[in-house]
Design a protein around this nucleic acid. Sequence first.
DNA 1: CTTACGGATTGACATCCATCGATTGGTCGA
DNA 2: TCGACCAATCGATGGATGTCAATCCGTAAG
Lengths: 116, 116
Amino acid sequence: MGRRTAELVLGAPDDALCCGVVTTAPLSESDAKRLAGILGALADPVRLRLLSIVAAQHEVCSCDLEAPLAKSQPTISHHTKVLAEAGLLVGEKRGRWVWWRIEPARLAEVRQALGA
Amino acid sequence: MGRRTAELVLGAPDDALCCGVVTTAPLSESDAKRLAGILGALADPVRLRLLSIVAAQHEVCSCDLEAPLAKSQPTISHHTKVLAEAGLLVGEKRGRWVWWRIEPARLAEVRQALGA
DNA sequence: CTTACGGATTGACATCCATCGATTGGTCGA
DNA sequence: TCGACCAATCGATGGATGTCAATCCGTAAG
């Protein structure tokens, strides 16, 4: 087999949040719930900084997040999981390491849902 | 005096969230905290639906939110306060009623902070 | 095989938060 | 002045959540 392990998509929700726009018409209860979930994933200082670090470097290993974020390894793992489940981050396991990268489309969806 | 009470701006933060963009460079700790605060105000199904209802009607009285949101009066009051403190909603007290309207600029700031 | 290392999971703990009943404060109509 | 109505505040409560130590699981190196 090749050197790199097969791509392991860690928590990739295929449900596109193609719901109504907040400023257009009243949101349905389910749409509001889904959008709130993704916004909840974003509403944390550590996760926002994590995202910005990954975005600035295109690809980042989990082990390289512990230091700049000044958080323990389980805490980093917890936050990456939350962001991945929200579809904002995608992780690829290569050997012992997991490399994370941003999902720009997901962020664009959130921006669109937030207004015109 | 006139018929309408003097404009009472209820919780209007003048601090512009002109911080870095998430996808551009690593966020500072303070910028991340401030942005997370506003996103936290948005990360609730009831508040998202509240926002969308106000946006759809340009101006809404608090008493007209209780029914469509199916929440008690103290709960509605709580949520409008949170949104107002985040700068997303502006309230004007006229007589016994409080009329709420959206602050589109604030929402635009959030969208911009969330990506290019 | 054994060791070392990166990462996920579990459990515990403290804190925050959404919700509502009860109360209080204003404002208008009778 | 009194009673009705709208809204804010207070206090309590149940649930969600960020954090870390301890542990477990895979993988690569020796």
